[in-house]
Design a binder for these strands. Structure first.
Lengths: 109, 109
DNA sequence: TCTTTACGCAACTTTTTAGTTGCATATTAA
DNA sequence: TTAATATGCAACTAAAAAGTTGCGTAAAGA
């Protein structure tokens, strides 16, 4: 229903999910759902939903171990986001060109 | 209400807005609202709303000229997105470390 | 075995987002 | 001056997202 890049952007567009992802990236070990939830004010179920979205985007992976589900970050999918951005990077420092073009348009009209 | 980075991520999380942004980046001149709208199936007002969100995020700027509002892309704010990503880039190629840590966790438990 | 812990699932509410229609207004062209 | 064009604004609908409560269940510990 949604393409990967959209899933990725939507996943990281939410501040809570960026926080969860960050916590997992800097964690020295995988963290259980409960351990993650304890770092946030919202309920465990709320956090679980966010983790599911991160998981669907490929940014978080999980390993079941008994009654625990340990989560760990996988930043690799961000490569695709980076690739998307690199195309626009070439316009970062000359984005006033478009303003020039605008002025040209005006002159031509 | 929303921080800049969240505004940016939300702006580019929508496929239509990425399309609008892209069209403006590759355009050889600034485009009016109507010119942009004509490239999409949705109504002009729908497109206008997307442009407003892009404008709030700083990705699109506008110049009024008579009854026209010419829009042009400004990719510079994407630098901040890039900065956000660069932190995680260091983990791209060793993201299995977290899996190792997970296994270590398991062993310790 | 009994209790606690860690979770999933489903139903629900609230808020946000995406998109529409309708109408008013200013600018441009005939 | 009259008609067409480019736009904004407001109200509305529909759908998606964010978050909650409640409950059931399997695993671990006492």
């Amino acid at each position: 229903m949604q393409d990967n890049i959209t899933k990725l952007f939507k996943a990281i567009a939410d501040p809570t999910r960026r926080d969860i992802f960050h916590a997992l990236v800097i964690a020295t070990s995988a963290l259980s759902i409960t351990q993650i939830s304890n770092q946030f004010l919202m309920t465990r179920q709320g956090v679980t939903k966010h983790i599911k979205i991160l998981n669907d985007a490929g940014l978080v992976q999980m390993k079941e171990d008994g009654r625990n589900r340990f989560c760990f970050a996988d930043p690799k999918p961000l490569k695709e986001v980076n690739k998307w951005m690199q195309f626009y990077a070439q316009f970062w420092d000359d984005s006033l060109d478009n303003l020039d073009n605008y002025l040209k348009t005006k002159k031509d009209a």
